[in-house]
Nucleic acid binder design. Structure first.
Lengths: 116, 116
DNA sequence: CAGAATCCACCGGGATACTG
DNA sequence: CAGTATCCCGGTGGATTCTG
């Protein structure tokens, strides 16, 4: 696994929190993981789910997730390129975290007031 | 001061994940919350727990947490200033999230191999 | 379709110094 | 003790263009 640079662990007690966080932060990773939890998706399928992400960012974030061993990238050698993204076991193991995040968000974020 | 800028919700379905994430990201917030979960702490007590944080950053992160309603800042009008930080109810409600994060980190982050 | 390349703005965050 | 105030650098992420 290619040593990723956000292994910037300062490791105070409680560091695993930061460590885990560093894998899912980065503006889109959380949502990407969230969507991938529901099944394999192609590049543009993910794009469609994230209306505001740019191709560049999507690619970058997916690559980081891949480098972190959370996402599997499967390329099909076809004329119209086809690339499928799915979660690895490690990625799937994040499910409880994402679920906790979503649960908290649903319960504590003003969904209605947020439409400002 | 109020003005929280990370209300940058793009709100694709699954947004609550991002929303929750936006509150606890920012390099030190996760760890701060983690420590605060164990009880009220003074400014320098937190600093001691986070050897690598600068006063500036600690102040900033605490202010953001406060603005997000997760942390309560209590100032004592005394000659040697005394400021205590504690979690609000809302902040405490994040416990499951932090716990999930920590559990995952403990289980999946190579604590030993990481010293590479 | 699924990117790669380039350019650039922004601001997160570190270092340092000063203060009530 | 618990902050401010400045300065400054690098990374993150946006917009746009090109391609196999």
């Amino acid at each position: 696994m290619p040593r990723i640079k956000h292994s910037n662990f300062d490791c105070s007690p409680g560091c695993p929190v930061e460590g885990a966080l560093s894998l899912i932060d980065g503006k889109w990773k959380g949502v990407i993981l969230y969507h991938l939890l529901e099944g394999t998706l192609r590049f543009n399928e993910i794009r469609r789910k994230l209306p505001n992400v740019t191709q560049r960012m999507l690619t970058l974030q997916l690559r980081e997730l891949e480098a972190d061993g959370l996402v599997l990238r499967k390329v099909f050698a076809q004329v119209p390129p086809r690339v499928e993204y799915s979660l690895t076991e490690r990625g799937r193991s994040l499910a409880p975290v994402i679920a906790a995040l979503k649960a908290w968000g649903d319960a504590n974020l003003p969904r209605s007031a947020e439409a400002a």
